[in-house]
């Protein structure tokens, strides 16, 4: 197992090299000039040329790449083209809201979706099953911004239960922190509830006809224990995969939800950086997301072995 983990961690290196090259090239080949954006509308070509020079954009691409990689190896992701700040500090500012939103969303999604999916499987063909699956289709189909707008209209504008927008760091008070996360997490969790519930139902259905379930029932085990200890546990591997996939998406930034509810997370940072052609920030973010993806996959693989002793690496 340890050997496997070391191999998997080392396998991140070639992935990151490929990502670095692709991201660097894609950004440079994308139309748009950060210097022109920075200079403003009334700037002359001379002004823009000076800024390009200051930003190091006049250097050959190979040299720019070398400088970037060299700095990155020393932990220096460079400075944003726009803000007189290091990219690392800007990312650090945005990680908190993203992690908070992702954590809340996943917890909420799991709390709701796994029982729903299990019950739907248990009551296969019943009105409850059809209702859960019907709701899943709606959850998949309705864009998150529509759900967000509806929730804001109902719970913030009409009922005045929650604020329309905004994020409060946990350092400013746990109550306000939780209070402000309820609506965005709820809106964002809908699609993941749909996804996880469907996957749970399918997986549980597959194991419900297995011999060991019949045996458990024949032994006189309570149905709730049959479902949780035997059915759900054996159905867990694909569910965990979907949850891991969801976490990766959430950490990678959920631009629409962040925009609608004004959460200053990594999604809007990425969007702003791409729109502004802020190369150092985009490059660092994509590298970060790549590492997160690989690590989440690694964690999922480890969880597989805990859930199913037959899986060995």
């Amino acid at each position: 197992m340890l050997t496997y983990l070391i191999k998997r961690v080392l396998s991140v290196i070639p992935v990151l090299i490929v990502v670095a090259v692709i991201v660097f090239l894609m950004l440079r080949l994308t139309p748009g000039d950060p210097a022109a954006i920075i200079a403003g509308d009334a700037a002359t070509s001379q002004d823009i040329a000076q800024i390009r020079d200051k930003l190091g954009l006049e250097e050959p691409m190979v040299i720019q790449f070398g400088i970037w990689v060299g700095n990155m190896l020393t932990g220096d992701f460079g400075d944003s083209f726009y803000y007189k700040r290091t990219v690392s500090s800007m990312i650090a500012d945005r990680v908190g809201p993203t992690v908070a939103l992702a954590t809340f969303t996943i917890i909420l999604a799991c709390i709701v979706a796994i029982p729903l999916g299990t019950i739907a499987a248990y009551k296969q063909g019943s009105w409850l099953d059809r209702a859960v699956m019907g709701m899943s289709v709606i959850g998949f189909s309705v864009p998150v911004f529509v759900i967000g707008y509806m929730m804001i209209y109902l719970f913030a504008v009409k009922l005045d239960w929650f604020p329309v927008q905004g994020y409060q760091p946990i350092a400013d008070g746990i109550g306000g922190f939780l209070y402000r996360l309820v609506m965005p997490s709820a809106a964002l969790s809908i699609i993941f509830i749909a996804l996880i519930a469907r996957m749970t139902r399918t997986s549980v259905l597959e194991v419900l006809n297995e011999d060991y379930i019949r045996t458990a029932r024949a032994k006189g085990l309570e149905e709730s224990k049959v479902m949780t200890r035997h059915a759900l546990r054996n159905a867990a591997v694909p569910i965990v995969t979907v949850i891991g996939f969801a976490i990766a998406i959430l950490i990678g930034g959920v631009v629409v939800t962040e925009s609608v509810f004004v959460i200053p997370g990594l999604g809007t940072l990425t969007l702003d950086a791409i729109q502004g052609r802020d190369y150092p920030t985009v490059q660092a973010l994509i590298m970060l997301f790549s590492v997160v993806y690989v690590l989440i996959n690694l964690v999922i693989d480890v969880i597989y072995t805990l859930l199913d002793p037959r899986i060995r690496y």
Binding site: I152, A156, D160, P163, Q165, V260
Partner: peptide
């Protein structure tokens, strides 16, 4: 910074 036009209007209406 509020990017979404609808959210801006709702936030203004609510006094946020």
């Amino acid at each position: 910074v509020i990017r979404d036009a609808q959210t801006k209007m709702n936030a203004l209406s609510k006094g946020e």
